[in-house]
Design a binder for these strands. Structure first.
Lengths: 123, 123
DNA sequence: ATTTTAAAACTACCGCTGTAGTTATGAGCA
DNA sequence: TGCTCATAACTACAGCGGTAGTTTTAAAAT
């Protein structure tokens, strides 16, 4: 899997917008984020610039404005983040991690069923 | 559950030592970390000072030297970190998270069995 | 063609992080 | 009692992250 650059908390929020739909001009990205975050438009621009610099997003010049798209896949980023979280917090052991989340977070019984069937297939 | 201060990556490594055994004098902490990390002793001291400042570890003056102990529990820190990870990377949905880890990380079949039985009890 | 305006680009600033050098302090030893 | 040595305390500094102000550019409108 592709090596992805480090992506900060705020940058993730920008990436999520682009993973959901792209390419997008900055104003639409800003708008999409306005819902969730209370950010100055320039803040989003800065984040886009940083993401561009580290090659996490690409820009295409479209006559007067730019269009942004992800250059790294969400799956790769999720993988990278998960790995790092697993190491840092659970010392690399998946089982305690799973037990933690099964235990501490509320799962519907439908979720439980689904999980069980996945585990069954997995075996 | 107690609100814990933000604990950085390197600080976590120090906390792990103290969660495993405490109270400890700085030299033993430094020694314990020497195995895993290639840090200058002063680096560890700085980390301890920062953790002390943010009240994540306490110090007791023991004649000439200090003894350090955690003031926040590992469980609370794990909980806080997990929550933040869940939000950031999986948008708050536990099921995709679980599926990711079941899928992407290698689990022994013993692990799978154990998980299944936990799920069974959980239901 | 000049003015207005939106977006892009550049600059800024503070607090946190990783990493460590430097200085002060106090206790044991000579 | 003065010297030495470990340890604690203070200082440093560059890079990142969150946040946004200022300047430039180029297109649209008059």
């Amino acid at each position: 899997m592709a090596k992805v650059p480090g992506i900060s908390e705020s940058e993730w929020k920008v990436m999520k917008v682009l993973w959901a739909r792209s390419p997008l001009p900055s104003n639409e990205i800003i708008e999409a984020l306005a819902d969730k975050e209370d950010w100055h438009p320039n803040t989003v621009k800065t984040l886009l610039a940083r993401l561009h610099k580290k090659k996490a997003v690409g820009v295409q010049k479209e006559k007067n404005h730019y269009l942004y798209s992800p250059l790294v896949s969400q799956a790769d980023c999720v993988q990278t983040e998960s790995e790092s979280f697993l190491m840092r917090v659970f010392g690399g052991s998946v089982k305690p991690l799973l037990m933690h989340f099964v235990d501490k977070q509320k799962l519907s019984s439908a979720d439980l069923e689904e999980l069980k069937s996945i585990l069954k297939k997995k075996k």
